[in-house]
Design a protein around this nucleic acid. Structure first.
Length: 1070
RNA sequence: GGGCCUGUAGCUCAGUUGGUUAGAGCGCACGCCUGAUAAGCGUGAGGUCGGCCGUUCGAAUCGGCCCAGGCCCA
């Protein structure tokens, strides 16, 4: 009768079979239903952008997410796992541009925003099917039935609501942002894009002089020496900056008095420079100077106060004396540092350049010209006014547009900000409540970043994104209304088109009368969309369309217990989730009446690092070293890959994806477990054992069973605690070690004979019950990480309806943990190793029985008679004796325990160690019996205490062979005639078994056996007749001193038994 | 330039609050076992713990500096 199924032919066949089962029976759904009333365990899935295919790194983070979710589900927690899609943003727009065969904002607007966004919307979900299949195939259970999609109207509405809450706290404002900008494409570039386009080009290097103006407005005779590589920005100069830490010098040069950093004097004027005097930067701060070009009225770009502050010297830490002159010209509209200094000091932002990079048409000399083309004319103009000290062209690396090759300009663009700096302390406090794995990402990389938090630049001058719900009055731009819901907008605008799409360009058409008191202006939406990171960070709220719907669902699912993403999300999703939670926390607490919700939106976060190729190189399409997950899974199966990724090293360490390592996992862990199952299934079927068969109580089982169940309980405890503490790597390694080492290589190996025959006896019943329990528990322990094989195994053992994922995660029975027994067995295994080494040394194979093994073990380790029987069997010796039973065979020596004596002796530790090592064997023998023994250190007497030392026993006679730690083994290697006879009998059994197998007999087939050979062999077989017949299942055994009659047997064979010739024949017994 | 991570055997990784003989697997060499067999087991060789300096009775472990690789930021 076949109760226990055969393993499928291949790993992939197994996984596909399991996938079919899950699909057919809706196992995932069942697991959610089963836990419906359980305590929620909240997990947030970070939304991927579905406009590309998943890569191997997605397998990695998903393995972690899935393992934790499955584990908690098995613990009875309710773990809904809602898929989501990140659908807005520049990457999507770029795909759409490719599709339309266009490039740049101008062409997008020619195509029309409506058409363009339609293409974006259509392309962004192009790969969702691929992703869904991918998730399914790797065994990532995720609910795709109603995913949250960031472009859906409900989602957008929640985002608007969140922005409104932030605005109500006064934390949204308009400002400028300096962006790398392509004047040809009319678009800002992300830092990633900028990095793509650096080119070496020749640009001006201009040293100019700017006269210092005395208090009365008159020249004071000195001039600043200033360096710039962008002469065109001089038109919008508003200030100079010096580093307050630097020393400056006044130099006399051709009758002029020039001021610059002392450190730069030699480079510009030579070693013999005529320095008049030097002075600290503080002398310069606040001085006024005359600007190089006075064409632009600052009042057009700021208030009168700002204008009054312009054209003075300000301190700025970013100024260096490594090149230039240590005096930097500031044009806040065209440089990030310039902008920051300008903003901090209330300076105007003079911006006379349009979107195409051309100067305002009304300017003299350069009006209407592309800024870089104006450099030469500006230079000539300065020269004619005697303001040029030195002018060259220098080659340097400068960013260009990766699409069109135009040089980029750093330009101030209007931008909307969230004043996150105002909640910095709360951000830090909330972050302190999050458990980071590893902690240093939270305290270090993320913590530092929060410490240096700058306001969140919220807006993007793009098309396909959540429109910024800010309406600005045409009559007075200070009148601002942030709309918090569609209903509100409908009310303000007196209706909305149906169906309503909140995206551009439709939303741009919606206008309404100014909401400011007594203003008759019209309010128009500001054209920007928002940063996509705000979209994804809004996910805890927006996936439920909170607070418009599903308030209960939201409250049950906020905050997350667990999230997991790549370390690249530190400034991405990890930040946007935390920032939004912090910004709206007080409001959420108020709405829900739950003050605890004014906190972080996630409590535990596992950070995973990159997956590199086998050579440790980053995977990239250009290098061609990208691993396609579909190919890898087809080769190795999902279980092995998941197991490999989690076991090879901690998630937050960058790891190489080595197919050899995956194969090793498959061979070592999975094949071993498969073999263990095959062994169990083979004999359980033969013997008709089922889980309902009688099972002796654990106390009544043999020591090796109690040992295995103790180990099983210990491992269960460790693994459960590891999973609970997000230490997946430890958990996985502990399971693998248990399977390979304890279960297969010791328990099964040492217990094999117990499984055949004799099911009526309690020994076999114990063995089956023990192995069965170990296999079932192992399946459950590994289920979170290897969901396929674990489920197959569990069903094979328990029943085809019994998915492991609907089972309870094991809880260890603490009463079964017997630490003493585990130590004792460990001792036996150590002694086995030493015994085998000893046999190796004397060259006597294990099949040859020997009389005795003498062993020494450390104090405090208990090895009962049962354990010693295992050792006898393993080493094939008749007796094991402990040497201290015969002290004349043993010498004692002391090994100091530094941990203890170090505390007692401090600086004299080394002397104490020497003294302890010098204690004579006889004294140690007395000490072992409990007598006081003293020693002396530095003239002071000390009394020996047990923790101070380990006593090592050494055999004194000729027997000593192997020793390790506190363990020593001595083998009696004398082969007596009796032992030789026994060995010969075992040799015969060995040859017969081989012959049985070669003859194609089944393990349970009975035979007739005939053996012929010399007198020694005949005598040996007669002496061991019963054992030989029993071991070979021989119903008849014919032992002959004369040649064997071949025709009496089906198969015969001449064999050599370690030098003794023999002739054996077997036939199947009827 | 700043922050963080990593560096232990040919390869992949362990190494508890510092404790004196630094472990495991793979690979390699040799051998064993055979009623889990296109399996299993053992033995052995192999390491100045990236380098230098320091703290300490004692450092792979703590501190400083440096080197190499990676990530993030500028």
């Amino acid at each position: 009768m076949k109760r226990y199924p055969d393993l499928p032919a291949s790993v992939t066949a197994l996984e596909e079979e399991v996938l079919e089962r899950w699909k057919a029976e809706g196992t995932f759904q069942k697991s959610l239903e089963k836990t419906r009333d359980g305590l929620p365990f909240v997990f947030y899935e970070g939304p991927p952008t579905a406009n590309g295919r998943p890569g191997i790194h997605h397998v990695f983070s998903r393995s972690i997410k899935d393992a934790v979710s499955r584990f908690r589900t098995m613990q009875g927690r309710h773990v809904p796992r809602m898929a989501g899609w990140d659908t807005h943003g520049l990457p999507v727009e770029i795909e759409a541009e490719k599709k339309l065969g266009i490039s740049g904002k101008r062409q997008i607007e020619e195509v029309g925003i409506a058409r363009f966004n339609e293409v974006c919307r259509d392309s962004v979900l192009a790969y969702t099917d691929v992703w869904e299949q991918f998730s399914a195939r790797i065994g990532y259970w995720l609910d795709y039935s109603k995913p949250y999609v960031t472009y859906h109207s409900d989602y957008v509405e929640t985002v608007w609501w969140l922005l409104r809450q932030i605005h109500d706290r006064g934390l949204i404002y308009r400002g400028h942002k300096i962006l790398p900008y392509c004047p040809r494409c009319g678009t800002g570039l992300s830092s990633h894009e900028v990095a793509l386009g650096y080119k070496d080009v020749k640009d001006p290097s201009l040293y100019l002089t700017l006269p210092i103006v005395a208090a009365a407005g008159e020249p004071d005779g000195r001039e600043f020496l200033v360096w710039t590589t962008t002469p065109w920005t001089l038109v919008s100069n508003v200030a100079l900056a010096v580093n307050p830490e630097l020393e400056y010098a006044e130099v006399e040069h051709q009758g002029r008095r020039l001021v610059l950093a002392t450190a730069r004097v030699p480079a510009l004027f030579g070693a013999e420079a005529p320095v008049v005097r030097t002075f600290p930067a503080t002398e310069l701060v606040g001085l006024a100077y005359r600007r190089p070009f006075d064409w632009v009225d600052p009042l057009g770009y700021g208030d009168a106060d700002g204008a009054a502050r312009a054209w003075h010297v300000f301190p700025a830490a970013f100024v260096t004396a490594e090149d230039g002159t240590g005096i930097v010209h500031l044009s806040p509209a065209f440089g990030a540092d310039d902008y920051t200094v300008g903003r901090d000091n209330g300076l105007p932002v003079i911006q006379p350049v349009d979107d195409r990079g051309a100067f305002r048409a009304d300017l003299p000399l350069v009006g209407g010209r592309f800024v870089k083309d104006a450099d030469t004319d500006l230079l000539i103009d300065l020269k004619t006014r005697g303001m040029v000290f030195k002018s060259t062209r220098e080659e340097h690396s400068y960013p260009h547009c990766w699409r069109c090759g135009s040089p980029l300009l750093y330009m101030a663009r209007d931008s909307w900000y969230v004043r996150t700096t105002q909640v910095r302390e709360k951000l830090l406090a909330n972050n302190a409540e999050i458990r980071w794995f590893p902690p240093e990402v939270g305290s270090g990389r993320f913590g530092e970043w929060l410490e240096n938090n700058v306001d969140w630049a919220l807006s993007r001058s793009r098309y396909w994104g959540t429109p910024l719900p800010a309406w600005v009055c045409e009559a007075d731009p200070s009148h601002l209304h942030v709309v918090g819901s569609f209903a509100e907008l409908r009310g303000l605008a007196g209706g909305l088109p149906e169906p309503f799409d909140p995206h551009r360009p439709f939303i741009d058409e919606v206008t309404f009368g100014c909401t400011a008191e007594g203003c008759a202006g019209t309010m128009r939406r500001t054209p920007e969309v928002i940063d996509v990171w705000f979209d994804s960070g809004a996910m805890p709220f927006a996936q439920h369309h909170y607070p418009f719907e599903n308030r209960d669902a939201f409250e049950r699912q906020y905050p997350a217990d667990f999230i997991c993403e790549g370390v690249d999300q530190t400034r991405g999703w990890f930040y946007s989730l935390l920032a939004i939670a912090t910004l709206v926390g007080p409001r959420i607490a108020e709405l829900t009446g739950n003050p605890a919700l004014d906190g972080p939106s996630y409590r535990n976060v596992v950070v995973n690092d990159l997956i590199l190729d086998p050579e440790g190189q980053k995977m990239s399409k250009s290098k061609g070293n990208v691993v396609d997950p579909a190919v890898a899974i087809a080769q190795h199966g999902a279980d092995a890959i998941r197991w490999y990724l989690l076991s090879v090293s901690q998630p937050w360490i960058p790891k190489r994806f080595d197919p050899e390592g995956v194969r090793e996992v498959q061979r070592k862990t999975f094949d071993t477990l498969r073999n263990t199952y095959k062994f169990f299934a083979l004999y359980a079927d033969l013997e008709g054992w089922t889980p309902d068969s009688p099972a002796p109580s654990v106390d009544a089982r043999p020591v090796i069973d109690r040992w295995l169940l103790s180990r099983l309980a210990s491992v269960t405890k460790d693994v459960r605690e590891d999973y609970e503490g997000y230490n997946l790597t430890h958990a996985v390694r502990a399971v693998a070690d248990f399977v390979v080492d304890d279960l297969s290589n010791w328990y099964v190996r040492r217990s094999r004979e117990r499984f055949w025959g004799n099911l009526d006896g309690t020994d076999a019943q114990s063995a089956y019950a023990t192995l069965y329990e170990a296999l079932v528990t192992t399946a459950r322990l590994m289920a979170p990480v290897a969901p396929f094989f674990a489920d197959w195994l569990h069903r094979a053992l328990v029943g085809s309806e019994s998915s492991v994922h609907l089972a309870d995660f094991p809880v260890e029975d603490a009463a079964r943990i017997d630490a003493g027994l585990e130590r004792g067995m460990a001792a036996v295994r150590t002694l086995s190793t030493l015994g085998r080494a000893a046999r190796e040394e004397v060259g006597i194979r294990v099949r040859q029985p020997l009389a005795a093994l003498y062993a020494v073990i450390p104090q405090g380790v208990e090895t009962g008679g049962d354990l010693l029987a295992i050792l006898r069997d393993e080493l094939n010796v008749h007796r094991v004796e402990f040497m201290d039973a015969a002290e004349e065979l043993v010498t004692f020596s002391a090994r100091p325990n530094f941990k203890t004596i170090g505390k007692a002796h401090g600086k004299n530790t080394q002397a104490a160690a020497e003294a302890i090592r010098g204690i004579p064997s006889a004294d140690l023998a007395r000490f072992r019996k409990g007598e006081d023994v003293g020693y002396e250190v530095d003239g002071r007497p000390w009394t020996l205490t047990p923790p101070d030392l380990d006593i090592v026993q050494t055999a004194t006679g000729e027997l000593t062979v192997e020793s390790e730690g506190g363990y020593t083994v001595a083998l009696d290697a004398v082969v007596t005639p009796e032992l030789r006879a026994e060995g010969l009998a075992r040799e015969v059994v060995n040859r017969v078994q081989k012959l049985r197998k070669d003859a194609g007999l089944q393990v349970q087939d009975r035979i007739r056996l005939g053996v012929s050979g010399g007198p020694e062999l005949v005598a040996a077989l007669e002496a061991w007749r019963g054992e030989v017949a029993g071991d070979t299942l021989a119903a008849e055994l014919e032992v002959l001193g004369t040649p064997l009659a071949s025709d009496g047997y089906d198969t015969t064979r001449e064999v050599d038994l370690d030098g003794t010739p023999a002739h054996i024949g077997i036939a199947r017994a009827g």
